[in-house]
Amino acid sequence: MSLTVTALSVEKSGTAILSDVGFSAPAGRITGLIGPNGAGKSTLLSALLGLVPAQGSIAFEGNDLPRMRRRDRARLLALVEQSTATEERLSVHDVVTLGRIPHEAAWQAEPNPEDEGIIAQALADTGTTGFTARRFTTLSGGEQQRVHVARALAQQPRLLLLDEPTSHLDIRAQLQLLALLRQKAGAGMTILVALHDLNLAARFCDHLVVLANGRLAAQGSPAEILTPELLRSVYGVSARLVSDTANGRPLIVYDEAIAEGDAQIPD
């Protein structure tokens, strides 16, 4: 069972942000959502979460996502945003505990032992156990992002959505995060991650969904769809693709930006 999106359209004040987007994200795999700025990646994630009104259908593991109750949906899918700060005095433990909200009983005052076990596991998975008691605002950007991932994992989602989670991370933290996603996918979680860095996407994703101007431009395995033609038409760059001899994954070498008139961005 996978995530299957069919004929998804989103309009904001009369302008189409997404038009007739259809794709699937295989279960237990990492699907990369790529495309230039303004292609509609964040809107697509918002639509999956039910945050913006959308037409079309979104099915996941036999559930019709838009028709689910909010709380039930929040038990099924979790979101990690690009970078979110807070002014609240919250410990790392407090932040991760937020992930238990969709599972908590109405008047539950404290996390119960089961919650604590899940929280401890999420902290361990993300390598954040060491700063459980620290104040969230004292962490570095990379550490904060790991805590956000831990919070999302504490939600025990079957589908994890991440909106450019690596953009504020140094390269080591980026690799650590994607390795963690690999591991979670291996354990059966379906992952949809919007990424800017195409080489990271090529290296870590099993499946890619390419958006351009609110439409689906291509989908398939990185080796199939990352071509000089696609990079030219979607991103407006000329680039070569070489194969990473170590793992057989495609590797992109960028040459130059194509002059505005020459780029053929599909409409």
Binding site: L51, R73, T84, L98, I101
Partner: peptide, 23 residues
């Protein structure tokens, strides 16, 4: 008081709260 826990969900903004199942 019944919505105290839901208020916690706002610590990281509206989108984060909504993704935790808050209306």
């Amino acid at each position: 008081l019944a919505n105290g826990r839901a208020l916690d969900a706002f610590a990281f903004g509206d989108t984060a709260a909504a993704s935790l199942g808050i209306d």
